[in-house]
């Protein structure tokens, strides 16, 4: 579909056989990062006691993420606040920018979401080994399992651990992709049913747009909260 196509903007850049051209995907990543920077810059510029609207949004997003980390990962995860805040805001803004007409949804491509999830996965695993050493492998050995069953259980636990980045990335990608495809399909119905029957799918598309905005926020929230849960597993073994 045309709205999911990635195309080059400007000249082709090849570095050692790797295609590093600037695409529309990179452009929209820069736009969403720029929007975040603008929001945070103007939100923290005037620190008035009675906050303006933009300051209120900034402060609310800060407390929202801080509370989320505190609730799910405990106070020891406070040091990872910048990482999770960045992740949350980036996913949120990419999803929301994708809701605008004629824009491109960065998170509707699995490679983008998979890289984000892989960063979380590798980071959490490295953190676990740094913090607990070889004892981190105890995560794969649940307590109170008979020795006969242990090899099977360990394999199952390892598969379950490896499925984390897959489920994390597929969830975000599938939700964004499916939502945008659905909007397109209903838009197509409006045209093909014409002036007589086109009103019903038009109403549906309006309702679905609202749902999509909810999903865009929700997926960013789920992405961030799962990162917190994985961080919690790495920081506090055997909770």
């Amino acid at each position: 579909m045309q709205q999911f196509e990635v195309y080059k903007i400007g000249p082709e850049i090849n570095l050692g056989g790797i295609n590093l051209s600037f695409t529309n995907s990179s452009l929209f990543m820069i736009i969403s990062s720029g929007l975040i920077l603008l929001l945070l810059f103007f939100g923290t510029k005037k620190k008035s006691l009675v906050p303006s609207k933009i300051q209120l949004i900034t402060e609310m997003s800060y407390t929202f993420v801080a509370k989320m980390i505190n609730d799910t990962a405990g106070s020891s995860a406070k040091t990872f606040f910048p990482f999770i805040f960045t992740l949350f805001m980036f996913v949120l803004f990419s999803n929301m920018v994708g809701m605008l007409p004629y824009s491109f949804t960065v998170t509707s491509h699995i490679i983008v979401t998979f890289v984000l999830a892989a960063f979380v996965f590798v980071g959490v695993t490295v953190l676990g080994f740094v913090k607990h050493g070889i004892k981190y492998l105890e995560l794969f050995v649940p307590k109170g399992v008979p020795i006969v069953l242990l090899p099977l259980i360990i394999i199952i636990e390892i598969i379950s651990y490896l499925s984390r980045p897959v489920s994390l990335s597929v969830r975000l990608f599938a939700n964004m992709m499916a939502g945008h495809t659905m909007l397109k399909v209903f838009g197509g119905f409006v045209i093909s049913l014409g002036l007589l029957g086109g009103w019903l799918p038009l109403g549906f598309s309006v309702a679905l747009t609202g749902l999509e905005i909810l999903v865009a926020f929700l997926q960013a929230y789920v992405f961030a909260i799962l990162t917190c849960i994985y961080l919690n597993d790495a920081l506090n073994l055997h909770h």
């Binding site: 598969i159 379950s160 490896l162 499925s163 984390r164 897959v166 489920s167 597929v170 969830r171 599938a174 939700n175 909810l214 929700l218 997926q219 929230y221 789920v222 909260i225 799962l226």
Partner: peptide
């Protein structure tokens, strides 16, 4: 709602990885 969406993909992802 987020939790519901979370659980459905978890089942599929593990099968795919396995």
């Amino acid at each position: 709602l987020g939790k519901a969406l979370k659980i459905s993909t978890e089942l599929v992802a593990a099968v795919v990885v396995g």
